[in-house]
Write a protein that binds this DNA or RNA. Sequence first.
DNA 1: TTAATCAAGACTAAATTAGTCTTATTTGGG
DNA 2: CCCAAATAAGACTAATTTAGTCTTGATTAA
Lengths: 134, 134
Amino acid sequence: MVRLSKKMEYALMALKHFALAEGGIVTAKEISEKHNIPYELLAKILQKLKKDKVLSSIQGTKGGYQLLKKPDEIDLFFLMHTIDGDMALTECQCSHNENGKCTLKELCTIKQPVTKMQKEIEDIFKSKTVSDFV
Amino acid sequence: MVRLSKKMEYALMALKHFALAEGGIVTAKEISEKHNIPYELLAKILQKLKKDKVLSSIQGTKGGYQLLKKPDEIDLFFLMHTIDGDMALTECQCSHNENGKCTLKELCTIKQPVTKMQKEIEDIFKSKTVSDFV
DNA sequence: TTAATCAAGACTAAATTAGTCTTATTTGGG
DNA sequence: CCCAAATAAGACTAATTTAGTCTTGATTAA
């Protein structure tokens, strides 16, 4: 099954919200309530986005988050890495398995064409940015 | 995370095996042993492929499976449906949720662009056939 | 009759994903 | 100074999905 994680959906919804706020400060609570996203979960997503320099944060009362990058500078491939970690179509393609952890090893007879397909799907994700979702 | 299921990998490996057997009868056991695929799991995959007219089966001793379709007639989109069921990038895109089961409902603000992206990814799957994996 | 095979469904286990809880820390304002 | 509202971070639990196993039965060539 090929599917965006809930986290990715939430991240996109949140980033759309930030984009529409046009640089203003927005709190996790505001986004959580407006879009019906579990607060704690959203908070962690925003923290990840901060860690990867997509957002900046302001602590304390009157605090919140702000967009650091422009919506059209945030592509979905980057976002997937930030939110979900490695994106790979099959186990043997992802980076932490390059050194022979894939149980199929040389027995796996479909690796090459899968790699090609992987590339094509990655390109789709790279070609989409948050601005496409606003 | 976007990833092919193990079942899809196994199905592709098995179908490649059938393709190379050029119409000959192949048993589940043979494929299972040669490619290190759990027998019972593979057996169920082959049964699904039979149900969707990709393979035909012959029961009894000397039995086995045979390709019914040509490798280039079996595209990965069809295969995903056969093996994994619905393929949808987000919950609200998949057919069994059309009637309002998606918890985000109208609150979901990213539906349209996701639908477009979904279409592009589906097109990639439709453009690949088993013959690309042989 | 027996052994090898497909057929089918129930069951269990493992892995992943989603969501919650708890305990800080920061900071503006009364 | 203290409180309330906010971010920060990690442990924990729950739910879902995926992978794999077990069992029982039917078919058929030798």
